[in-house]
Amino acid sequence: MRLSRIAAVVAVGLMFAGTAIGADAPKQEKKTVVVPPSSRVLVKGATKSAGAKRLAKGVKAASAKAYGFTTGVSEEKGSFKLGILLADLETTLLAGDKDKSLKAVDTLAEGLTALGAPTPLVISVVNIKAAITGGTDLKAVSAASMPVLRPFLDDFVKKEGKTAYQKLGEWTESTRLALLASQQQKSNLAGNFLNGVNMASYFLEEMKGLNLPQGATDGLTSLAALEKTKITGAEVKAALKALAAIQETMS
C-alpha cells in the first residue's frame, strides 16, 4: 500500500517535471521568416520625426502613363510600382495633400487594372478616391481605408508571386522620402533609415536568382554598404542616387 502511494507520488512528480521540461527544453527552430517593415510603418515612423507634410514634398505626382501602366508593364515591374504608389498614398494621405493623394489613388487603380487585379480590389481603391473627392478628412481615410485595402492588395501580389518586388518598391520609396525630408531638416532621420531599417542586404539575398536588372543590384549593393550609425551628407546624397537608380531601372 505504502509502496503504491510512493509510486503514485513519483509518477505525478515525473509528470510535472515532464511538463516543465517540455515547455522549456531547447526547441528546434522551424524556420526564420524575415518580415520587412511595410511602407505604412516606415512612413508612420518617419512622419513622427520629419512631419507628414515635409515627407510628402518628395512625392512625385506621376500619372499612370508615366508609370507605364497604360502601355503594358511586366508583373515584376508593375508590382514594384504598386509598392511605390502605396508608400506615396500613405504619405500624402497623412499629409492631407488632396491633389497628390488623388493622383496616387488614380494611378494605383489603373495599375491594379493593368495587372489584372480582381474587380473588388480595384473597386475598393475607387472607393478611397470617392472618399477623398467627397471631402472626407484624409487622415480618417488613411486610418479607415488603408488597413482594409492592404491585405487584399498584398494577397493579390502574393498570388502572382511578386511580393518581393512590391516590398522593394515600398522600401525604396519610403526611404527616398525619408532621406529627402532629412536633408531639409538636417535631422538624424537619414541615419535611422540607413542604419535601422536598411533592408538592402535582405533584398539582395531574397531576390537572388530573380534576374534583377544590373542597375537595381548595383543600387542595392551601394545602399547595403551604408548600413552604419554615422551618416554624412555626402552619403545621404549617394544613397538617394542609388535609390533613384533602382527606381529608374525598375521602371
Binding site: 526547441k27 528546434q28 527552430e29 522551424k30 524556420k31 526564420t32 521568416v33 524575415v34 518580415v35 520587412p36 517593415p37 510603418v41 516606415l42 508612420k44 515612423g45 518617419a46 535601422g196 531599417v197 536598411n198 533592408m199
Partner: peptide
C-alpha cells in the same frame, strides 16, 4: 519546434 520572425522595426 519554435518559429522565428525577424525584421527591422521603427
Amino acid at each position: 519546434q519554435v518559429k522565428r520572425y525577424s525584421g527591422n522595426r521603427e
